[in-house]
Design a protein around this nucleic acid. Sequence first.
DNA 1: TCCGCATTGTGTAACGATACACAGATACCC
DNA 2: GGGTATCTGTGTATCGTTACACAATGCGGA
Lengths: 341, 341
Amino acid sequence: MSTRVTMAQVARRSGVSPMTVSYCYNQPDRVAPETLRRVLEVAAELGYPGPDPTARSLRRRHNGAIGVVLGEHLAYAFEDPQARRFLTGVAEVCRERGVGLNLIPTTGEDDDVDRVRSASVDGYVVWTTVDSDPVLGVVSGLDKPVAVHGGPAVPGARVVSIDNRASARELAARTFTGARHPAVLSFPFDRDRLARLESGPDPDRVEFPVTRDRLLGVYDHCRDAGLDTGRLPVAVVARNDRADAAGMAEALLDTGADAVVAMSDQLAFAVLDAARRRGLRVPADLAVAGWDDGPDASREGLTTIAQSLHDQGRSCALIALGDRGPSRDPEWTATVRASTR
Amino acid sequence: MSTRVTMAQVARRSGVSPMTVSYCYNQPDRVAPETLRRVLEVAAELGYPGPDPTARSLRRRHNGAIGVVLGEHLAYAFEDPQARRFLTGVAEVCRERGVGLNLIPTTGEDDDVDRVRSASVDGYVVWTTVDSDPVLGVVSGLDKPVAVHGGPAVPGARVVSIDNRASARELAARTFTGARHPAVLSFPFDRDRLARLESGPDPDRVEFPVTRDRLLGVYDHCRDAGLDTGRLPVAVVARNDRADAAGMAEALLDTGADAVVAMSDQLAFAVLDAARRRGLRVPADLAVAGWDDGPDASREGLTTIAQSLHDQGRSCALIALGDRGPSRDPEWTATVRASTR
DNA sequence: TCCGCATTGTGTAACGATACACAGATACCC
DNA sequence: GGGTATCTGTGTATCGTTACACAATGCGGA
């Protein structure tokens, strides 16, 4: 079982040309029934497993697969509820179109770009990454369609993202109403992912575009409302994880915050958990809001920016397959519930 | 930007042979520094993105990727904690070895086998599936290494699995001690995944080997202990999901069960949830045990069969890459906690 | 009877790259 | 100075398949 059976061998054995065998697999209708039967019989006899996918890809000039570049260990992608919803949308399109799904986790190491470049795929979907990610330069130079979820904008790539800045502005307006000490619970600023507490950090230091835009939106509102952003407490978490974020949620409450815009449902839940531990009343003592409107958000009565990451995953996949994709940015809506005043 | 730049073009433009360009990318040390510089310069100038992965794969006769066949929608794989731990192990090996990870969800439809066959991969990992899955026949006829997690056994494929039957026998012995009305909360029997309540179902009807073996193990114990398996209540869930399984857990308790062997931590938690709702004391009124020993199991004091799905994922990935893999079955241990007597 | 058309099969030439063996040049040793 | 080892570069022959254009055959209709 070590030598592989080729189409040519099947052809020889069944007394037809290789092309006929090829047609047997790709356009069976074009072949006389009797010939088809004989060829398939010989193929079975010889143990020919069907056309070699690699050779076929080379000749046809497409691979029947898209690559999904994830900026983290795969475990991350599996644990993060947002990433999961997004990937589910991507996978759905893959199944509909009969194409494969190649997961390419990158961790910021040197061989990342090689792994990305050497994937046999027809297009790429890049999950939220930092402005300076070298992978972006690589994929955009490959003459293959690229969809970047959540930015950054790159020449030759489509960005699929809600208007994070506008949504943040509106959410901050909702959440900070009647508050005396507004605050923010933020995603990491850069790949170092160090948890810390800051005061009105400079948005230019934020390397993840989604995070930066949401911060900018909050600042927009602060300016609208005449608040001093310089003293706005901004706690940065290491991971988008409810349990993990507990520490920074506590830190925020320690500053006396009475209204928190958190950058995801998970982070908002972390704040709610902390409030519960302290016996704070929500929203009377503390207003909280987040993003995404996942299934838990309605259960916990969280005010949140609703968006469909599932649909955005679908859009990205379609773009990576060469479709035009949607002509407009994805929808978002501020869903107001009992966690804000 | 529509014609693609080839190695030959770079060669011509830089006045060397194609082989030299190839060496520049694959064995740069073999090329004179000056030549290397010039070639790379020309390549950059022409926008040559580096060797085409497909052509390279064809020539080298390997793809640098493994395929992971999942018997369900991708969303499932992302939601199921066991599948996630397993996939994380697979992904870890992929990263270490610099190979890609191709996810191939199958749903029991006709094009499944084509999608599996036409994936450009060097080997396959098949996640738990039914005995009769046609995909098994396909992958085993491909002359590529195949690891099947949880069985079934197929000629030409390695099975990676704990001894489910033996572990079930031991767990049942632990759990049913002192019980008058033992019962089982089971994974689905087949791909239809219909939830239902049965009495001592015939194991031959169970198409998932993992499920069948665990059921057989429980029956083994029943015989050891002189219990009548014919009247053993076995509730079958539609999904391995804590919330989803609530209904069948309730149904089991309605039968008056006072000891339940559940086939996973998740299902065991569903039983604990139901017990809590009814105010039953665990383990006094109700003994419960499960499988996997995930992170929540210790928190909730669950007796469970500990196994490392992460390591099993690693083993499967190594096998799919052509390694020998471990010589013995994966380890398992009954971890006894407060949920049993 | 002859033309036209549909049906079925066949050569040829890539797709883009690399394994392998070898050639020319240079350096180095005794 | 001859012999040998090292360093660089080059032809050739695939890897296994499919696009394309064309040839052979048979059949119906005018």
